[in-house]
Design a protein around this nucleic acid. Structure first.
Lengths: 168, 168
DNA sequence: CCTATCATGTAATCCGTTACATGATTAT
DNA sequence: ATAATCATGTAACGGATTACATGATAGG
């Protein structure tokens, strides 16, 4: 049992395991790409290493299948739930950063019109994707994902407005 | 002379050196925190290691003071300008990610009201800071930083609207 | 004079990314 | 059958973060 630092990646894995129950790394990958991956990308390799890290800290437990591929099955432990609850409970006042590569280029003198014309289709596509997800969402989806999706939608709308002003 | 991968950090250093001319790591730190650092944070250690990396690739040149502290002085080279221009010239269509820690918590079930009440003051403070910078901006500031600042302002406004809906 | 804080730098760690690899399934 | 894609994993690398450290300057 070892002390580890918990990163956003850790909480994503814990949160998904809480939601889904027992799960393989590949299962986690599927979950990510259909949910939180829309605004917080993880690489598939992290879904192998992170549960292992969490296992060392006792926050998840690991089993292996007997036959066949002997895949790893992970499950959140009570201690893991506790850590997740604590994290959820601390209402953070810290802000993320924009970190838009396009804004960086703009800042350092790239041509605004050209940038805008490259950014607009991408933002519009992302917006369409979000709206499709929202429209296909079953009623029973909890508030969290629903609200996060709304945040994504309004963010894309704002970005589109911004770049539209700069497009020639 | 060595091949290195250029990251956003690299372009920030190159861009600042282009703007400021010869500069020490500490000078870069000052520049960052009064400009691009508003939406793209760097740790001060990176401003020591990154110019060194760029030196290996011939994109910046390094001199050392003779007397006193023998501080390092960096300057962008023609090859560095070239790399910077090329980067600025490619109008990227790739999107950054939101990566707001608060959104992540929201997604995984944190209490929206509590989160909103923690996020609102922070976003309002950031907005006020941006507006103060804009209002104090001399006329001669180039369009890039000015537009990036506008993006930051509209982003903060939108975030405030979003969280206001969730605050009880 | 003493102690904060600013200025300046190095070193270690660690997480995230990239690259490499191969076994299963499905489609043609 | 064979190619393509899905599923599953490991290993190496490198950049970002954190921690450590010390010299200068200013304030009390």
């Amino acid at each position: 049992m070892q002390e580890i630092r918990l990163t956003p990646t850790s909480y994503i894995v814990l949160g998904l395991l809480e939601f889904a129950g027992e799960c393989t790394p590949y299962g986690l990958k599927q979950l990510v790409s259909s949910s939180v991956g829309n605004f917080w990308t993880l690489h598939h390799a992290q879904l192998y290493t992170e549960p292992e890290r969490l296992t060392k800290a006792g926050l998840v437990s690991e089993k292996r299948e007997r036959g066949g591929r002997r895949r790893r099955l992970y499950e959140i432990t009570p201690k893991g739930r506790e850590a997740l609850d604590e994290w959820r409970g601390e209402a953070t006042g810290s802000l993320g950063e924009l970190r838009e590569p396009a804004l960086l280029k703009l800042f350092f003198g790239a041509d605004p019109g050209a940038l805008a014309r490259a950014q607009l289709p991408a933002h519009r596509a992302k917006l369409a994707e979000y709206e499709a997800i929202r429209d296909g969402m079953p009623e029973l989806v909890p508030d969290g994902p629903r609200l996060a999706l709304e945040a994504g939608i309004s963010h894309e709308r704002r970005s589109i407005e911004f770049w539209e002003e700069l497009a020639g």
